[in-house]
Amino acid sequence: MTEVWKPSVTAAAIIERDGRFLLIEEHTSDGIRINQPAGHLDPHESLIHAVIRETLEETAHDFTPTALVGTYLARYFSARTGKSNTYLRFAFCGTLGASHDRSLDHGILRVLWMSRDELAACPERHRSPQVLQCVDDYLRGDRIPLSMLHTDPSVIGNNHD
C-alpha cells in the first residue's frame, strides 16, 4: 500500500486595528520571518479552537474569530533544507481580546503591528506569500460565515488515534 499524501493544515488569525495588522516575528528554518499568528491544527480540535489557541500562544492575547476570510493551498520550498511541504491554511478574522502575562511560544521573537503598505514593502520577510494575500482578501471584504464550518463530535471526543 502506498502512503497517502496529506497537506499540513494550519489556522491563522487576521487581526486589524486602526489600519494596522497584528503580526508576529518568528525564527524559521529559513531565518527570521513575519507571519500572522498561525499554527498547525492539533488532534482533537476544531479549526476555530486551533486559531484561538495559536493566537494566545503566539501573541499572549485572546482572539474571538468572527468569520473565515479564506482557505489557501500552497507549496513551500525551503532553499536552505531543500525540502518542500504543502500547507492548507484557514485564515480567520475577528477581534483581539485581553492580554495575558505569559511567555510567547518557542521561536516567537515579538508581536508587531504593521499597515498593509508596510507589509507589502517587505515580501522577503514574509513566512509565505499567503501572509499578504490574507490581508488583501480581508481588506477586499472576503468573509465566509463561521456557520459554514462543521466539526463532527468524533474529532473532539475521546476517540482512538
Score class of each variant (00 low, 15 high):
residue 79 A to R: 15
residue 51 V to C: 07
residue 20 R to D: 06
residue 12 A to Q: 11
residue 86 T to P: 00
residue 51 V to N: 08
residue 82 G to Y: 10
residue 26 E to F: 06
residue 43 P to N: 10
residue 46 S to L: 07
residue 79 A to W: 14
residue 59 T to I: 05
residue 13 A to P: 05
residue 52 I to S: 02
residue 75 R to V: 00
residue 36 Q to K: 07
residue 15 I to C: 05
residue 59 T to F: 03
residue 43 P to A: 13
residue 38 A to H: 10
residue 26 E to G: 10
residue 46 S to I: 05
residue 52 I to E: 09
residue 26 E to M: 13
residue 23 L to A: 10
residue 76 Y to V: 06
residue 60 A to I: 00
residue 72 Y to I: 02
residue 25 E to C: 08
residue 88 L to I: 04
residue 50 A to V: 05
residue 21 F to N: 00
residue 54 E to P: 01
residue 26 E to W: 04
residue 51 V to D: 04
residue 70 G to A: 05
residue 38 A to S: 15
residue 19 G to W: 05
residue 79 A to L: 15
residue 15 I to R: 00
residue 80 R to A: 14
residue 59 T to M: 04
residue 88 L to R: 13
residue 39 G to F: 10
residue 87 Y to G: 00
residue 59 T to Y: 04
residue 43 P to K: 07
residue 10 T to S: 11
residue 34 I to Y: 12
residue 40 H to A: 14
residue 67 A to V: 05
residue 68 L to P: 01
residue 62 D to P: 04
residue 16 E to Y: 08
residue 24 I to H: 02
residue 78 S to R: 07
residue 47 L to Y: 03
residue 44 H to N: 14
residue 57 E to V: 02
residue 70 G to D: 01
residue 86 T to D: 00
residue 69 V to M: 03
residue 77 F to Y: 15
residue 82 G to K: 08
residue 17 R to V: 07
residue 40 H to N: 12
residue 41 L to I: 12
residue 83 K to S: 14
residue 76 Y to R: 15
residue 36 Q to G: 07
residue 86 T to F: 00
residue 28 T to K: 11
residue 84 S to I: 04
residue 35 N to C: 12
residue 88 L to K: 13
residue 13 A to W: 04
residue 83 K to W: 13
residue 42 D to A: 15
residue 37 P to Q: 06
residue 86 T to N: 00
residue 25 E to F: 03
residue 28 T to P: 06
residue 44 H to M: 11
residue 41 L to S: 01
residue 61 H to L: 11
residue 48 I to M: 10
residue 77 F to P: 00
residue 84 S to M: 13
residue 76 Y to E: 11
residue 16 E to L: 06
residue 12 A to Y: 04
residue 82 G to I: 06
residue 40 H to F: 11
residue 47 L to R: 06
residue 28 T to V: 09
residue 27 H to Y: 15
residue 82 G to D: 08
residue 42 D to N: 14
residue 60 A to M: 02
residue 70 G to E: 00
residue 49 H to A: 15
residue 72 Y to E: 03
